[in-house]
Amino acid sequence: MIEFKGSHIISRSRQELWPILQDPAVLKRCIPGCEELVLNGEHLYDVRLKVGFGMIKGSFQGTVQLTNMVEPERYVLNIKAEGRTGFAHGTTRIQLLPHPSPAATEIRFESHLQVGGMIASVGARLCQGAARMLAEQFFRELEKCLRN
């Protein structure tokens, strides 16, 4: 089980940020390695990912679903991905908190990821770091999106 949390300050208000975070186009751009993201139900997306760290690369298929949505405060991201090298299932609780500086939001996240198969049994020591890096990448991309 990988557990990690973090927070990030984004220079948009919560109201502005809320729809952006549900926008499939944005999600596709920001989810690291996302090659395909197709709406397939209420707040449910089918995804295809290609995730890599250096030489280590894996293709995954799965779903991302947003649940427990309380606009514009919080929601839960449910992730399910499977590939030949293993699988990852889990939830990330996302909270949007007003930030003291004007028009800014603090996004807090708390992830619980269950990793299985090959990646768990040969890469356990790297999984935590990998997950963290993916989260960082997500926010980096999000900021880029917002800048444009």
């Binding site: 089980m1 269950q114 990793v115 198969g117 090959m118 768990a120 049994s121 040969v122 356990a124 020591r125």
Partner: peptide
């Protein structure tokens, strides 16, 4: 681990 994944799956671990 608590879900039954073998974390020491190679001789590197």
């Amino acid at each position: 681990d608590e879900s039954g994944q073998l974390l020491t799956g190679t001789l590197m671990d």
